[in-house]
């Protein structure tokens, strides 16, 4: 069937349709929903619970267990700072303090202008070249305070250049 080019299937329905016949479908569905919407809206919880034969409390319980899942919209860029030991050994604590003050955010907060969310992360697998941070799906190594500022500046430029 050819779909109208403007047709966008509801991402929640699409995720459920793709996974519901598979065992252990809930986590993949949650990932798919968050990947397309940026977070897991409350309405989606109701729909997923019904489709997968779970209670809302069960679905909410799973979401709250995992640090990765969020129920509020993220900023345009999610900045994750590695807090784990190998990065601590090369200055992650100072970088963390710098990032918080530069962004004006604490962990788990999103800026009012919707540009950034700040999250902690415990290891990105780049432990030989820390301190490490992740922005979106990209990991950056040897992030000094100056490099952190450069990376942010780069994002701000992108934000202006990108349409929409």
């Amino acid at each position: 069937m050819d779909l109208h080019p403007d047709f966008t299937p509801n991402p929640v329905q699409a995720a459920i349709a793709a996974w519901r016949s598979q065992p252990g479908a809930l986590l993949p569905v949650l990932h798919a929903v968050q990947d397309s919407l940026g977070y897991i809206p409350r309405d989606a919880i109701v729909v997923m619970a019904e489709a997968l034969g779970l209670t809302r409390a069960e679905v909410s319980g799973v979401i709250s267990f995992y640090h990765h899942f969020r129920t509020t919209p993220p900023g345009q860029h999610i900045v994750e700072i590695c807090r784990a030991e190998a990065c601590q050994a090369v200055g992650a604590r100072q970088l963390e303090a710098h990032a918080k003050s530069r962004l004006g955010l604490n962990y788990h907060q999103t800026r009012a202008d919707g540009q950034f969310s700040l999250e902690p992360v415990y290891c990105l697998g780049n432990c030989a070249c820390g301190p490490s941070i992740r922005i979106g799906d990209v990991v950056h190594g040897r992030v000094s305070e100056a490099r952190f500022d450069d990376l942010l500046a780069g994002l701000a430029i992108q934000a202006v250049e990108l349409p929409g």
Partner: peptide
């Protein structure tokens, strides 16, 4: 491939299995 979701304890094998089954780890 199935993805975890940021929980260290899901490296413990039984918590991992719970997670694969779609539950809290």
């Amino acid at each position: 491939v199935r993805l975890g979701a940021g929980a260290y304890i899901c490296g413990e094998e039984t918590a991992l299995l719970e997670s694969l089954e779609g539950r809290r780890g």
